[in-house]
Computed example of a mutant assay.
Amino acid sequence: MTADVEGPVWIPSLPPTLEQFLAPNLQPIPVLPILALILATAYTAGAVRLWTRGRRWSALRSTCFLVGCIFLAVVTGTGIEGYGYELFSVFMFQQLTLMMVIPPLLILGSPGTLLLRSTPHHGFGRLTLRIALGALRSPLARFALHPALVIPLVALTYLGLFLTGAADTLLRTWIGHVGLEIAFLSIGVLVATPLISADPLPRRTSFIFRVVDTFVEMQVHAVLGLVLILTLTPIVPFFAAVPESWDIDPAVDQSLAGVLAWTYGELPLLVILIVTLARWERRDTKQATMLQTENDAELDDYNAYLRQLSQNTAPRAPVRSVSDPSSSPRTRDADSQ
């Protein structure tokens, strides 16, 4: 027995193995693999344009972005995508990768900065820059990147999706499944951008909000993981129809999905938390050093002023007047005679 999915979908018949997971089995309409190819091509073209013009662009940033594109193509363009229609654990792995791994890699590539530097300021390029800057400065962008929006998005994506039955309804159609994957990727970008982005943003999130957001996300993952591990009945009935020939217990597979949510989903957040704390400490140290330097400069200026003031007010030796008879040598000689 297999899950019934409406739409152009390829569902594997062989039991899951590592070889089957990584086999290049594209879906009939590979939306996200095509998106990965487009993103990688556009980014590479921008980087090459800068390099050919003798302008510097970080190879590390390029590597991060392209690795993110590769991960996007792998989790949605190989056998993993097909098994994600049958196994809850595979679908959870896809969701966590699309939300927690790929977005930070894409954001660390600073695609916004590359767009502003590599796009020509004439013709179609000028129109592209106007659209990009207009979108960046819009009220919608400020709202979407507000740190207070992170917690509701994360709670809705994890707890709301699986505990309300929404996942069971959406996963039964190809449009719903692909729509969820696009939503995971988009929400991951919205959540990670305020935390780690170095691109120009309409607002900057304070470090205290970054730490709070990351900590709350970790708690949501832990709660979802515990619920999936401790619940013996299928939370998402769609994944209860595992092929009998695969010899996989849906309850065990659901527990594995919970373990992934608690471990694999927590690891990127732990890395982000460590990086955030390190950046916070580095910024405070830099500010303290600059303040100390300014104070030292002000103290040196004040000490120099005091020295100059003391020199101007020091008592001077009496100056004798030439017209004073008592000071003339002749007068003294006449007096002595």
Rank of each mutant, 00 (worst) to 15 (best):
L171Y: 13
R172L: 01
R172H: 12
T173S: 07
T173G: 08
W174Y: 05
G176H: 07
V178N: 06
V178G: 02
G179D: 06
G179Q: 11
L180G: 09
E181T: 06
E181R: 14
I182E: 06
I182H: 07
A183E: 07
A183W: 09
F184E: 01
F184C: 13
L185H: 10
L185E: 09
L185M: 11
S186N: 06
S186W: 13
I187C: 14
G188C: 07
G188I: 11
V189H: 13
V189C: 03
V189E: 06
A192E: 06
T193G: 05
L195V: 10
I196N: 07
I196H: 07
I196C: 00
S197A: 04
S197F: 03
S197Y: 04
S197V: 03
S197W: 09
S197N: 03
S197E: 00
A198N: 12
D199F: 13
D199E: 12
P200K: 04
L201W: 14
L201T: 12
P202A: 14
R204F: 12
R204N: 13
R204P: 06
S206K: 14
S206H: 05
S206E: 04
S206R: 01
F207W: 08
R210H: 01
R210P: 02
V211L: 05
V211I: 11
V211C: 08
V212C: 05
V212L: 04
D213P: 03
E217S: 13
Q219W: 11
Q219D: 02
Q219S: 08
Q219V: 11
Q219E: 08
Q219P: 00
Q219C: 09
V220H: 08
H221N: 11
H221Q: 06
A222N: 07
A222T: 10
L224N: 12
L224Q: 04
G225F: 13
L226D: 08
L226A: 09
L226F: 15
L228M: 15
L228W: 12
L230A: 03
L230G: 13
T231Q: 10
P234N: 06
P234F: 05
P234Q: 08
P234K: 05
I235W: 10
I235R: 04
I235Y: 14
V236T: 14
V236P: 03
P237E: 07
F239W: 06
A240E: 11
A241P: 00
A241V: 11
V242S: 03
V242G: 00
E244D: 02
W246T: 03
W246E: 04
W246H: 04
D247R: 06
I248S: 06
I248D: 11
P250T: 01
A251H: 14
A251S: 09
V252S: 15
D253S: 12
Q254L: 13
Q254S: 02
L256H: 13
L256F: 13
A257N: 02
A257C: 02
A257F: 00
V259W: 10
L260F: 03
L260A: 08
A261R: 09
A261V: 03
W262R: 03
T263K: 14
T263E: 01
Y264H: 13
Y264T: 00
Y264R: 09
G265N: 04
G265S: 11
E266W: 05
L267I: 15
L267K: 09
P268K: 09
P268A: 05
P268M: 04
P268V: 01
L269E: 13
L270V: 07
L270D: 02
L270Y: 06
V271G: 06
